[in-house]
Amino acid sequence: MSEDNRKVVIELQDVRRDFQVGSEVVHALRGISFKIYEGEFVTIMGTSGSGKSTLLNQLGCLDTPTKGEYYLDGVAVRTMSKSQRAKLRNRKIGFVFQSYNLLAKTTAVDNVALPLMYNTKYNARQRREAAINALKAVGLADRLEHKSNQMSGGQMQRVAIARALVNDPAVILADEATGNLDTRTSYEMLVLFQKLHAEGRTIIFVTHNPEIAQYSSRNIMLRDGKIREDTVNTNIKSAQAALDALPVANDD
């Protein structure tokens, strides 16, 4: 972990985040510091109230620290304006949400191309090309023109992952990305995340499910707004093996 020749994608220095609730001040994050290097697959775990959602908002540049510094790909986020952060999210971050958050009645390609609509460097043809490539990468080459309401949960989450990949982000932020899926489909998603990890992508997976930590390369455990544990996983389990070991679904 202390190998300094690896590129730092995310660096938090004593990040604190306070919320004013009525007359009380709630300390959601109480001084968090860590570095995440390029190519890591980090799970951030914690029970509800541990501050993991607040941390995710910080990492995703949706919020700024009350105190402390956050550097994303070398850029200081704390002093940025809302518009600057929007642009930063557009170029550096790929979000995957628990509830997929696809645009209704919209094709897979158009859903995936959405982030590129906010990047004027892409014209319509380039957007489509990039979206198709991203969909191929998540194994949906045959579902390009399917609308979001014609797809299963697993397919929708794949579209969402493709959308997170389309801008070639510095980091993919997944928020309970398997939370709405059944066991089999959850493993399929983990297989996909492991594949992306193997391709060199940096992934941060926020979850309350401890099982998922076994498939990542590093695990950060939060409690009461502080890091309780930060361990490198040397024995990464294969999601593909776990998927193969599942009894074959016989409900069809």
Partner: peptide, 16 residues
Amino acid sequence: TKEIGLRMSVGARGID
């Protein structure tokens, strides 16, 4: 609202 949230999180600014 949810669509707006999504658009913002993938990089839409307030003006967009």
